[in-house]
Deep mutational scan, measured.
Amino acid sequence: KFGRVHERAEGPAKILAIGTATPFHWVDQSSYPDYYFRVTNSDHLVDLKEKFRRICNRTMISKRHMFLTEEILQKNPNLCSHNEPSFDVRQDILVSEIPKLGKEAVLMAIDEWAQPKSKITHLVFCTRSGVDMPGADYQLIKLLGLSPSVQRVMMYQQGCFAGGTMLRLAKDLAENNKGARVLVVCAESSAIGFRGPSEDHPDNLIAQALFGDGAAALIIGSDPKMGLERPIFEIVTTAQTFVPNGDCHLALHLREMGLTFHCTKDVPPTIAKNVESCLIKAFEPLGISDWNSIFWILHPGGNAIVDQVESTLGLEPNKLQATRNILREYGNLSSACVLFILDEIRKKSGREGLKTSGDGLDLGVLLSFGPGLTIETVVLR
């Protein structure tokens, strides 16, 4: 008597548009150690500064975009301390800036989509910054002038794996609601975790050397309108798992001094060791076991992770080039990073006149991972 209210779509979910945005301000990685130790009044920690310089040199990052300028840091000195309470200051900045950054990426996506924004039916927003109620999803709806009846899902504090999570959720929403057009937004800022150095917490140096700011937005829907919408990728399958006891290797915690970062040297080999089982589960039903026969979007948690995944799986050097390019130009953008790589690989395919948006290949994989050593596996066509 009370059956399904919403009719299912006929076809699989497809990515119809991609937009990205970054803050205008950026830092050069080669000179960042001098800048970082100067603005945090830590130049007296000579040995720690040299250690940080070595870490920065190993990241293979060229530059990173950041909202925090020297002027902002001078006005808010607690942000430059390692342990002073600064959460309220971070909140005041990020509750406002995260939706604005997301808006810039959304406008780029809508411009490519070339359809009225009134056709957006759902919003899925993800960030690890600016936790608030009502959330960044609500603020973004107002900034864009979208209908208050847009169906919203707000996900805070997920971390680097969440780019894949957003695709998984959007696929379910698009395929189970005929005519749905799902706006996916990942907006991230390193301002939540920026803090001064400490000899007692070397993990913090890794975070300060890796993370950048950026937002990515996608429009996802099934059954694209012929002649009006141009699909870029099809989302074939999605899956999530985590490595048992992985939280002892990688975890982040909200504290009075901001978001703290805990990471062990076992993260790269542990991820590399567990990736292939995810690939087998995803691609065995499709008859694929040659990992060089697919295109790759791999989250660059750090250069060591990229190198070890490449080595463990025997990947050809060009397979992870898009990942390395984004890491070099932006650093680790947390949940937004794989979506930047997705954009990079389709643009490169277009520039080179390849037959598909995925490096000329039919199928590919998007792998994202993060806290708890959670792994998201997304098969794309």
Rank of each mutant, 00 (worst) to 15 (best):
V131A: 15
E352V: 04
Q240K: 11
F37C: 15
D290S: 07
V106E: 06
M257C: 09
F233N: 02
A304I: 09
V46G: 06
N318Q: 13
G350V: 15
R54Y: 00
L342F: 05
Q139G: 09
R54E: 13
L254M: 02
A322P: 15
I294S: 08
G331L: 00
K49A: 05
V309C: 06
I288L: 05
T264M: 15
K273Y: 01
F369H: 15
I98M: 11
D359G: 05
Q29D: 07
F369S: 15
P244R: 10
L48P: 09
P269S: 11
V309F: 10
C337V: 09
G287R: 07
H65C: 11
T323R: 01
T238M: 06
I297L: 06
G287S: 02
E256R: 08
F52G: 04
S86H: 02
R64F: 02
Q74C: 00
G350S: 06
L123F: 05
W296K: 10
I288Q: 04
I110L: 15
R328A: 10
W296L: 09
A105H: 01
N76H: 09
G358D: 11
L143M: 11
H25P: 14
L380R: 14
I232K: 05
E276G: 05
L298G: 03
E276L: 04
E71F: 06
E7S: 09
L361M: 13
D359F: 00
I280T: 08
I288K: 10
L361D: 15
S86P: 07
H122G: 03
T356R: 03
P134A: 13
K273I: 04
F340R: 07
R255A: 15
A114V: 08
P231I: 01
G130V: 07
G360R: 05
D362N: 06
D290E: 09
G11S: 02
G301K: 14
F369M: 15
K14I: 10
E256W: 03
R324K: 07
G3S: 14
R54A: 13
A251Y: 00
A251K: 03
Q321Y: 01
Y36S: 06
S31T: 09
D290G: 06
P12N: 01
L228N: 08
V46L: 07
E234G: 08
E112V: 03
P268Q: 05
I297K: 12
Y32E: 09
S289K: 12
L380A: 14
E276D: 05
L373P: 15
L320D: 02
K319R: 12
G370H: 14
L73W: 11
F52A: 11
I326D: 00
K75I: 02
E50G: 03
W26I: 10
L366W: 02
Y32K: 11
T20H: 05
S357L: 06
H6W: 09
L313S: 04
K63N: 09
R53D: 02
K347A: 00
H6C: 03
M66K: 12
I294E: 10
Y32D: 08
T237H: 05
H249T: 14
S129Q: 03
I235N: 00
M257T: 07
F67C: 11
R8K: 12
M60S: 13
E310P: 01
V89W: 06
H262P: 14
T260K: 07
V338K: 13
E97C: 06
R8N: 00
P285G: 12
E344D: 07
W26P: 12
P85K: 10
G130H: 09
E329C: 08
S368L: 01
K103S: 03
L143S: 13
S277C: 09
N318W: 12
S293M: 01
D88K: 08
G358F: 08
F261T: 13
A21I: 01
E316D: 12
R381D: 12
G353T: 00
L366V: 10
L140V: 02
K14E: 04
T264N: 13
D111V: 03
L327K: 03
V275Y: 00
F242S: 15
M108C: 06
F233G: 03
W296R: 10
V275N: 03
N76T: 11
S289T: 08
V124P: 00
F24I: 15
G11A: 06
W113M: 06
G287N: 01
E284F: 00
L298W: 12
T22A: 09
D92Y: 07
G350K: 11
F52W: 07
V267D: 13
T270R: 06
T238Y: 01
D34R: 01
L140N: 00
K51W: 04
E71T: 08
L315H: 03
E256F: 07
K281N: 07
E284I: 04
T377E: 13
L373D: 15
P317Q: 01
K273N: 08
I297S: 06
I141C: 14
V5A: 12
F233Q: 02
S86W: 06
L250W: 10
A17L: 07
A272C: 13
F242P: 15
L298Q: 03
G19D: 02
H65S: 03
P116T: 04
G350H: 00
K51I: 10
